[in-house]
Measured scan of single mutants.
Amino acid sequence: MTEYKLVVVGAGGVGKSALTIQLIQNHFVDEYDPTIEDSYRKQVVIDGETCLLDILDTAGQEEYSAMRDQYMRTGEGFLCVFAINNTKSFEDIHHYREQIKRVKDSEDVPMVLVGNKCDLPSRTVDTKQAQDLARSYGIPFIETSAKTRQGVDDAFYTLVREIRKHKEKMSKDGKKKKKKSKTKCVIM
């Protein structure tokens, strides 16, 4: 069974824990209790493949930012979460993405942009803004509501699919490099 290491990042209060708990335990946590770091595991079937999701729910508070490099190193894919009623959390996505790329030393890291709290009427981040940002990053965008469960499975499952595509691409690139290195030079 394939294991996928997913990391949920975003500013404090955007609903990272609520999304994760909704996926794992099928219930909505409405009281806000700032996370330092929590880890969850769940076995699911995605596109006919049974897999184990190892999900790291991270601290959004700035005082825990020193811990970010460590979990970013171990993560295979990242859910970059903002709240649709919090423009600052949307603007912060850029910083999370840049930090992930720096730590992973790669421009090509599996990510999904997630606009959470889409059940709320007080939207300050337009869907088109988020779609445009995701398009500019070359990553999928999904709106979710941890409260109603809308888009929750889709967000995590899409990230797994992005990781699969990335692994497939990397193995193809690896095979191309191996083929090239088999060419021999004969000096007579």
Rank of each mutant, 00 (worst) to 15 (best):
L6M: 09
L19S: 14
Q22R: 11
V45R: 13
Q61I: 09
L6E: 00
D30M: 08
G15I: 01
Q43V: 09
A11W: 09
Q22M: 06
D57Q: 00
Y4K: 15
D38N: 04
V44S: 12
L52M: 14
S17K: 00
T58P: 03
L23T: 14
E37P: 02
K5G: 08
V9F: 08
P34D: 03
G48T: 10
T2A: 13
T35G: 02
Y64G: 05
T50L: 09
K5W: 01
I55G: 03
V9C: 13
V44F: 08
N26G: 13
H27V: 15
T35I: 00
Y64P: 04
V29N: 06
V45H: 12
D57H: 04
D33G: 02
V44I: 12
T58C: 06
F28E: 01
I36Q: 05
I21Y: 15
G13C: 12
I46N: 12
D47K: 10
Q22P: 01
N26Q: 12
V44G: 12
D33S: 02
D57K: 00
T2G: 15
T20Y: 02
G12H: 08
V9W: 03
E37G: 15
G13H: 13
E63G: 05
Q43C: 09
D30Q: 11
V9L: 13
G15M: 04
T35Q: 00
V8D: 01
E49W: 06
T50P: 14
L19D: 12
E3A: 14
S17Y: 00
E31W: 12
V44T: 11
R41K: 14
T20D: 05
G13K: 11
N26W: 07
Q22T: 11
I46K: 09
D33Q: 04
F28D: 01
G13N: 14
V14R: 05
L52V: 15
E3D: 12
L53P: 06
L56N: 12
G12F: 08
I21D: 04
K42G: 05
D47F: 06
V44N: 13
E49C: 09
V8Q: 03
K42D: 07
D47R: 09
I36T: 00
A59M: 02
Y40S: 01
A59W: 01
K42H: 11
G12T: 10
V7K: 07
K5E: 08
I21L: 10
K5Y: 03
T2M: 11
P34V: 04
G12D: 14
T2I: 10
E49L: 06
A11E: 11
V8S: 05
L53Q: 07
V45A: 14
Y4N: 10
D30I: 07
G13E: 14
Y40T: 00
L23G: 12
G48D: 10
I21W: 07
E62T: 08
G48N: 10
I24H: 14
V14T: 12
I46G: 08
A59L: 01
D54M: 07
K5F: 03
L23W: 12
